[in-house]
Design a binder for these strands. Structure first.
Lengths: 237, 237
DNA sequence: GTTGATTATTTTGTCCGACAATCGTATGGT
DNA sequence: ACCATACGATTGTCGGACAAAATAATCAAC
């Protein structure tokens, strides 16, 4: 999210100091973020300061600062006098987030087309192959989701825009639950992969218009699939 | 920014309690945010915890939590072991932010066209009139900027999407410096107003394609104007 | 038995003081 | 003028403290 690393990688790489001084707070932040994104902390779960303190082993000061950051990122929502809970987006909010994703990802795709090298395109194609391998294996949804994350990593890498990466990253994080739900629908993975292949093809052809169209269409499908599954779930319960 | 209010507005409206308890922290947050957005705290200015503590009259705990939120919002950047400074976007970053704005604002415009009532369109037109009045008066840039903010408030209100409002608000805040710089260029205000009038006309005609085009074009102009002015400034100094 | 009021417990919000680690700078020696 | 050291300022983190608010539990009354 807030990652700003630049490495010239000149003649003196390797003696690069691993970490310029990592505030403990950031480790806690990364840890909690990962826990939320991996669904170790499920949406709606309460985050009680004292519990986090004991389980993580840091003071309340640090915990509270981290919670404020997560709140500003939109991953948790803090209710005054009540505390923080893992954010659970409502259906309409999820729909909006998907619309924002579509706008931003198509922007990223256009940037990629403008700036990326042929090697970047190959790398992008490789991540789709990787996804296919995971999808054909078993129905390991989390692994598939991680593979898809990798696709976006490469895409944003090639787009060469930390700003877009930062903002889009935040949006994607907020709909991660829906993304997982959508991917877990029967038949969805194979369709996703064919959509991605088409997108990569358009990107390789440097066809910005077609790529934008495919990108938006893909997210449209993902959105409606996820929302339908969500509606079915809540109806079943 | 982090406004999440939902009101079913059923039979029991009106007895809604205004504020359930406002944590002191939020007042400080709003105050500091306003100070940054109004350039009372200029980009690059250091935010020393002890000073803020004394000037605002709250404890370091509260100050630090607020700084973490502002950091996550991107309004300040904290350098480990060095402290927080008001964020000063680099030219390339500003360019990216304008691209993101274009993507998001055109989305908001389309949403507005879909959902807004005729009264909303009138309200939008009224804000442009207001801007014109300010622009023709004197060269009060901050007032003009505030009037333009009001335009976006109405736009996002009509778009009826707190999510888009939230994310776009964050982006706009980060480029506020550039927006002010751009508006202060001679002749820019009148051009801005004619661009906005054209945009409102397209919106009133419910022409999504044209409105999108105009919106993107407007931001393109604003971006290049701002960047040019910035380059001239840094050359002069 | 359900409702209502009172009390206890938990949890947040805020403050204070403390101390090590680190950064920037002034100091002083050469 | 240059380098090393010492000093001061500032952040990072901890611990404890207490009021205010929310939640849960207990008991009284109808």
């Amino acid at each position: 999210m807030a990652s700003t690393e630049k490495e010239p990688a000149g003649a003196l790489s390797g003696i690069r100091v691993g970490r310029v001084a990592a505030p403990l707070r950031e480790q806690v932040l990364d840890g909690l973020r990962r826990a939320i994104l991996d669904f170790d902390l499920k949406p709606g779960a309460r985050l009680v300061e004292r519990e986090l303190m004991e389980q993580i082993g840091v003071s309340r000061t640090t915990i509270r600062e981290v919670l404020r950051e997560l709140a500003a990122e939109g991953l948790v929502v803090v209710i005054p006098q009540k505390g923080a809970v893992v954010h659970a987006p409502s259906p309409v909010e999820a729909q909006d987030l998907y619309a924002v994703r579509a706008a931003l990802e198509s922007l990223a795709v256009r940037r990629f087309i403008e700036r990326a090298s042929a090697a970047d395109v190959d790398a992008l194609r490789a991540t789709v192959d990787e996804m296919e391998a995971v999808a054909l294996g078993e129905g390991d949804i989390p692994a598939l989701l991680r593979a898809k994350d990798r696709f976006y990593d490469v895409l944003l890498e090639g787009a060469a825009s930390p700003t877009i990466q930062d903002i889009l990253g935040g949006v994607q994080a907020r709909v991660r639950l829906l993304r997982a739900t959508s991917l877990s629908q029967p038949g969805r993975p194979v369709r996703v992969i064919s959509e991605m292949r088409a997108l990569v093809a358009a990107i390789a052809a440097r066809d910005a218009g077609e790529a934008t169209r495919l990108c938006v269409a893909h997210l449209d499908n993902a959105s409606s699939t996820g929302l339908k599954a969500l509606a079915a779930d809540s109806a079943a319960s």
